[in-house]
Simulated scan of single mutants.
Amino acid sequence: MNPDISDLLIHTKSEIELLTQQSNNGEINKVSLKNILENLRSILDYHSEDISIKLKEKQISVPDKVYFPYEQRENHFKKSIDKNLPKLKKINNNLYTVIENAQPFKAHDNWIIDLCSLTNEAKHNHLSKTENQKSVTVRQGNFIHIEGGRNITLYNNYANGVRLDDVFVDNNGEVNIVKHSDTTLVIEKHRIMFDGKSVEVIPFLNKCHEKMTTLTENITEQFAKF
């Protein structure tokens, strides 16, 4: 494995863990998020550069600057391969297949498209906008258990003759408790989403790292057979 790629995988894993800890408090560092996205994206182009060097050694004309091929549709992918890594299928069909299998039309998963799209946006336009979707779980002994709720009102409730706390949860997940018996347990959970997308940040980053690790292992195995 290219040692630079290995370093990036190790570093991004550590950065994702730090970002995960931050997300538990309902916020994340957008600059750190940008760096993680860019570092994961760089791994793809490092692979392309390594492959292009091998193709040049076989007297294949390759552009000075190459990019890792990723496309939604198969015909677009083939054009991208021909442009960036020409004749790869003929020279090393197994390696071509590894790259092809990572594409949405084969993998039935858009992770590679989403990663590159989010990275380009963060790199060229603005830091990734995120949205904190907070949910609240309210428990009062063995009597009341409401999970993931908003707009909750618990008022003037009794259990075994004892008045339970009054609990009010607004639409933003903010909690207000008027104590009577001090029996209320409130658990807050945070889901940090990419703004305008149904993609949760931390699970997405973990998924990309896992997919990238597997892709790297497969590319490395076939690259050795050039």
Score class of each variant (00 low, 15 high):
N2L: 00
P3Q: 07
L9K: 09
I10P: 00
I10H: 01
I10K: 08
H11S: 02
T12K: 03
S14E: 13
S14K: 04
I16A: 01
E17W: 00
Q21F: 07
Q21M: 12
S23A: 14
N24G: 06
N29T: 14
N29H: 12
L33I: 09
L37F: 13
S42K: 11
I43S: 03
Y46Q: 06
H47M: 03
D50L: 11
S52F: 05
L55Q: 05
E57P: 07
E57C: 02
S61R: 08
V62F: 08
K65A: 12
K65Q: 11
Y70L: 06
Q72E: 13
E74R: 09
E74N: 09
N75I: 11
N75R: 10
H76C: 01
K79Q: 15
S80N: 11
I81Y: 07
K83G: 01
L85S: 05
K89R: 02
K90F: 03
N93V: 08
L95D: 10
Y96N: 03
Y96R: 06
T97H: 04
T97V: 13
T97E: 15
E100R: 08
N101K: 09
F105H: 02
A107G: 00
H108T: 05
N120W: 10
A122N: 09
A122W: 02
A122F: 08
H124P: 09
N125R: 05
H126D: 12
S128G: 02
K129L: 10
T130V: 15
T130W: 02
Q133N: 11
Q133E: 02
K134P: 02
S135K: 08
G141R: 03
G141D: 01
N142T: 15
N142P: 07
G149Y: 01
G149F: 09
R150H: 15
N151I: 09
L154N: 07
N160D: 15
G161M: 10
G161Q: 05
R163C: 13
R163S: 11
V169W: 05
V169Y: 00
N176A: 00
N176R: 05
N176C: 00
T183V: 15
E188M: 00
K189N: 15
H190M: 07
H190W: 10
R191E: 12
F194G: 03
D195M: 12
G196K: 04
S198A: 15
V201E: 14
V201R: 12
I202H: 01
I202W: 06
K207L: 09
C208F: 05
E210N: 08
L215N: 03
L215E: 08
E217M: 04
E221H: 14
F223R: 06
F223Y: 15
F226D: 03
